[in-house]
Design a protein around this nucleic acid. Sequence first.
DNA 1: AAAAAAG
Length: 604
Amino acid sequence: MPTSYADSAAAGGNVAASGGSRSSYVPPHLRNRPSSTVPQVSASYGASVSGDERFGRGAPSGDGVYFGGPRNDYNQPAYGGGGGRGGWNNRSGGWDRGREREVNPFSDDAEPVFDEQENTVINFDAYEDIPVETSGDNVPPPVNTFAEIDLGEALNLNIRRCKYVKPTPVQRYTIPISLSGRDLMACAQTGSGKTAAFCFPIISGIMRGQGVQRPPRMPRMAFPLALILSPTRELSCQIHEEARKFAYQTGVRVVVAYGGAPVNQQLRELERGVDILVATPGRLVDLLERARVSLQMIRYLALDEADRMLDMGFEPQIRKIVQQMDMPPPGIRQTMLFSATFPKEIQRLASDFLSCYIFLAVGRVGSSTDLIVQRVEFVQETDKRSHLMDLLHAQIANGVQGKQALTLVFVETKKGADSLEYWLCMNGFPATAIHGDRTQQEREQALRSFKSGHTPILVATDVAARGLDIPHVAHVVNFDLPNDIDDYVHRIGRTGRAGKTGLATAFFNENNASMAKALSELMQESNQEVPAWLSRFSSRQSYGGKNRRGGSRFGSRDFRRESFDRGADFYGAGNAGGDYGGYGAADSGYSGGAYSAGVTSAWD
DNA sequence: AAAAAAG
């Protein structure tokens, strides 16, 4: 091997080490703060937060357990006080009235095991070239600051608590669109502030109480006003955690429902009232069939990882929920679809759920992978384990392990995950596994153990491929390559976060021939060195199954445009293609913001 | 063929 793996792994520890003028990735909640005021995570704090609490289960329901606790360092006037609720929160029946106190969702942010040393130098010059495409009729112009939008006092306070100072590009564009009531199909990567992009307008809209209409009085039936669906339980948990922060003390109540967890607890939460329901499809269908949830009051529908939600496995359930229960039709409800990738056949499907929607793409070619060093190694099936062991040993030798860097190993099957986990443990590597055959408790425990660094190796199936925000993943190993290039992109996007370059290693052999072409194209687009043998594989490959959409890596273009701009390269060199009709002026004036262009990790 | 999502 020309360059040793270990070199890359070592370089992966630090952006500066990889040279170049790339700015460090700044997590959304730390953006735009002078670095001296970036809060350091205190090691003592957080130890008392039970793991369960982080996942929204077994949360202490006591009165303000965390109020006045070690982490109440916001220095916000009116924080926790009675102020700030006037005018905006006139909805009757704020759920947190009276004796019951809303648990402070900002108290469980810390990850005490790690040193949060991500020093946050933002390269403001670098991100101005983030291309943005919008299409559709009468697209509302983007905003540059949160102040330009009247989201409401309580929500603004939470935005400050989250340390958001300026909206990210995707938020700039999507918030005015959704506040104006339009349906939306948005291509934007997780970590780019996508969750906030759909949560803010939903929370704000609910606070305003637009379309005030009391739900029918039905005992034990919940009438959420907004529904957020995601493809995995852990992702739903994550969205719930984030939405709780945004909704804190707004009077807007967020509840999560997903399978594998005791349904009774979720039912109790629902009975206490729900404005925003975050759910996975299976459990929601269950709740609908038990008549414990009605969708007739739904005003907002958001699908996260929408392309996954509408693919073969999920589509029937989604259709049932959206079209065959009591949800108001498109045009009455507002629908927002988000994903990093949006193949046009899925776009076509998705348009069934939308009404006169706006298409938005934020990102640029290769942005998903610029900071990730991608390596592909030819490894026969029988050699994979020993090869993995070599990589892990090299990692330890280079101190990466000592620095609590995490390694995420993707395999194809659940059985394969179990046996690899077992084998790693037998060989002295602290590993755990997450996949769909494990109990939900085991899954959440595995994720916690991995995140905390207690078990710095996680063997995973695709259940962990999308959406999950796991800081400190330094290395993603595609022990088995996926069969879909989009899955590859999602998987490697778990690394490279928090200002570090990531490393992604793939084991390739004859069984992956169908991936050769897409893989080498993707690597080329992200300026990776493509091994000669892989190029030979890809030229040998006749016509790959699923391939690059119109030659553009990131995202997609609006499929409704296909007829008239065939051949034009979206985001192509020279850009001519970057502005589509009617929006050029606004786009070229686009500047400022909390993003550095090289925010690979954040943009998966 | 596999994974995810209800129990």
